[in-house]
Design a protein around this nucleic acid. Structure first.
Lengths: 200, 200
DNA sequence: TTTGCTAAATGAACGACGTTCAAGTTCATT
DNA sequence: AATGAACTTGAACGTCGTTCATTTAGCAAA
């Protein structure tokens, strides 16, 4: 049964995550302030620490949403029965688009650092593989020789390389490619990678 | 002439950057505290703001050193008259080694964010191209058809892709490759890229 | 309904932080 | 030696995340 206490607790949690998501979207991780977020959520400052462990956990809850949303975008980007190289390009393109359209929330996924001594809980760690899940199938078609663990490893490398180009393009200090060239450079990278992968 | 005032000012600056470098190396950007760093440098809290604009500038001065040191490592890694693919592998390997051996200082280069409203000054921006400078020559040999701007662009993409793999391996939440596989995966990435580049 | 117990809400207070500032001190120049 | 500018000092300020004693609300047994 949903007691009144539990319902209110859940409601407050949702309002807090909503407010935190908005704050991060507007001002990045730096824009997330306990006082702002509780005001926006309509509760007292101290109530935050009843609904949630601390600000770190609030960030993780926001990142959880972002990862789910990003995962859905990636999943929807691949046309059914698309050839593997086309699937790779579609995934990379969707990733670039998401990062450009949701820069602050996307950055928070990778830039959030826990307080010293604190570890990322398992439930949140388990949400990250969504980033590479869709790569594995087309990569497996390109490299039927690779055993599953090697396939996962190569998918991680592939994702990380694309991620790096996007990250430095958006946040790099004049070593990243200009954002105007981002999509074409990522496409060239994926092209080279899939060709190279095919040949090795 | 070096007046006594100027000499002392320079000395203090150096001691502050030394202390800041140590603090970042030990505790990351989060480990840099105004009170700690001034105590370690042997001056009063307020003196920091006479020697230096603020903590952001102190971080940039540390990053300046790290970039110079990293640049030297990259330069020394390439054997003279090495074939271009070998030069690429050497550069990537040196980059991985530097990141693994100086993780906190290396991270600070990419994770430091200025206070809101503040911009990275030009003198510091100008220090980042050291990261891609050495890539251009061997890449030019692989792609003699590319005009200079396209060459720079492709070098940036190449660097960023390697950087991404290293970054996620070291800081990723279970989407990066294990550190034990980092060198071989980066090597495979560079191999695929140079092969792919050669063919396009 | 009333009573007692548990759990949540509240906002003042705490400690740590970056930064500023009025006061005292040192230095270069006359 | 005297003057004015520059540096040094550490207390003080404002902001932050977090805690806590107190008040308030929800729930179950009588």
């Amino acid at each position: 049964m949903a007691t009144k206490t539990e319902k209110k607790r859940e409601d407050l949690r949702k309002r807090l995550v909503d407010a935190a998501e908005l704050a991060i979207a507007e001002g990045g991780l730096r824009g997330l302030k306990a006082r702002d977020v509780t005001t926006k959520a309509g509760c007292a400052l101290g109530a935050l620490y009843n609904a949630v462990e601390d600000l770190d956990q609030l960030v993780m809850l926001v990142n959880s949403r972002t990862l789910a949303s990003l995962g859905e975008n990636l999943r929807m980007s691949v046309a059914q029965d698309a050839p593997p190289t086309q699937a790779m390009q579609a995934l990379a393109g969707a990733y670039v688009d998401f990062a450009l359209d949701n820069t602050s929330l996307w950055s928070a996924i990778f830039n959030h650092k826990m307080a010293i001594g604190a570890e990322v809980p398992d439930w949140h760690k388990a949400e990250y593989p969504v980033l590479i899940a869709e790569i594995i199938a087309p990569l497996g078609q390109l490299r039927p020789d690779l055993p599953p663990e090697a396939l996962t490893l190569r998918a991680q490398t592939l994702f990380a390389s694309v991620h790096g180009v996007v990250q430095l393009a958006i946040h790099g200090r004049f070593v990243g490619v200009p954002v105007s060239s981002l999509k074409s450079e990522v496409a060239a990278l994926v092209d080279a990678m899939t060709r190279g992968i095919h040949l090795v």
